[in-house]
């Protein structure tokens, strides 16, 4: 272990369990996200549907179905850590292809974060435990091999920057000076039955303004605070509640994949110990030496 604090923070070698848990959670999320399009593949992604490609013409119905099921297979591979790099590369490539076919028409910042996370995970070693590939390499999914902490830090930093960016936007834009934007959002096309019920409550704009200012103040504070052990749990709870509420109240559910990724803000050594205790010590204390 380096004694240089900079190297220790960014480049030390650590157990891969935090990354592996993030990989599994992200894979499950992607399966749900991609699975929602399955009933409408031909209409959304083939030349028999309403498709507006940016670069490449849409494929035939049969080709689009084959491409989409290959996409799902790649996501399953990512989740299970099976043929990991091929699976992640396939997921990224097909996701970009589907994006240029259709999804570009929907302004989606979450797609950019997802792409960044997948690119980092591709070379992260997130398959070095709790994976099919590790079972192939050493005979047990519980075995683990050390990885660099850098990918974990990069994804955590991206999450922080994202929260700081949307906070800056709220401080900058004139619509976010009071509670009107929230009150209107609760009855907009993004509304949900829960938000419409909330909008019918006898609440004044002062109430909505209080919520807006609470978010404006605590969102950036928690984006920073989550790096510090003393404020981590509080920040985790606030940011998770925020993400769940924008899903439940504004139909913006796609960011929930960030919640399990909050584990990346914890020390990988602590996550390793936490996993080891809960696995009834099936996870060995030392990394496996056998590698192919």
């Amino acid at each position: 272990m380096s004694t240089n604090p900079w190297d220790h923070f960014w480049l030390r070698t650590v157990p891969p369990h935090a990354l592996a848990l993030t990989r599994i959670a992200l894979g499950l999320y992607l399966l749900v996200y991609a699975g929602l399009y399955v009933p409408n593949i031909s209409m959304v992604f083939s030349k028999e549907g309403l498709v507006f490609p940016l670069y490449f013409d849409p494929p035939s119905v049969l080709s689009s179905i084959i491409i989409y099921w290959t996409f799902l297979a790649c996501i399953i591979g990512l989740t299970l850590g099976a043929f990991y790099r091929i699976s992640v590369f396939g997921t990224i490539t097909i996701a970009l292809y589907l994006w240029q076919l259709q999804l570009h028409g929907f302004p989606t910042s979450y797609n950019r974060i997802l792409l960044f996370c997948l690119l980092v995970l591709l070379f992260s070693g997130a398959q070095r435990t709790l994976s099919f590939d590790q079972w192939r390499r050493s005979g047990s999914i519980w075995h683990w091999e050390p990885v660099s902490i850098l990918p974990q830090r990069l994804i955590a930093l991206q999450i922080t920057v994202t929260f700081l960016g949307v906070s800056l936007q709220k401080w900058w834009l004139p619509h976010w000076k009071g509670g009107e934007i929230l009150a209107y959002s609760y009855i907009s096309r993004w509304s949900t039955p829960l938000s419409r019920w909330y909008a019918r409550l006898p609440l004044t704009l002062v109430h909505y303004g209080f919520i807006v200012w609470t978010v404006k103040i605590f969102q950036p504070l928690c984006a920073i605070g989550i790096w510090f052990p003393r404020f981590r749990l509080l920040s985790f709870c606030f940011l998770s509640s925020f993400l769940i509420l924008i899903g439940a109240m504004l139909s913006i559910w796609w960011f929930v994949f960030v919640i399990p990724a909050f584990i990346l803000f914890y020390s990988p050594e602590d996550v390793f110990l936490w996993c080891r205790v809960r696995s009834a010590s099936r996870i060995p204390e030392k990394p496996v030496k056998h590698t192919k």
Binding site: L50, F52, F106, P107
Partner: peptide, 24 residues
């Protein structure tokens, strides 16, 4: 369907109009 066609809307009225014609 993304009826607003944001990708083309930011490219100007001519391109947006052409895409709506293509959609129709």
């Amino acid at each position: 369907m993304r009826a607003d066609l944001w990708t083309y809307r930011v490219q100007g009225d001519a391109i947006l109009s052409a895409q709506y014609r293509k959609m129709a």
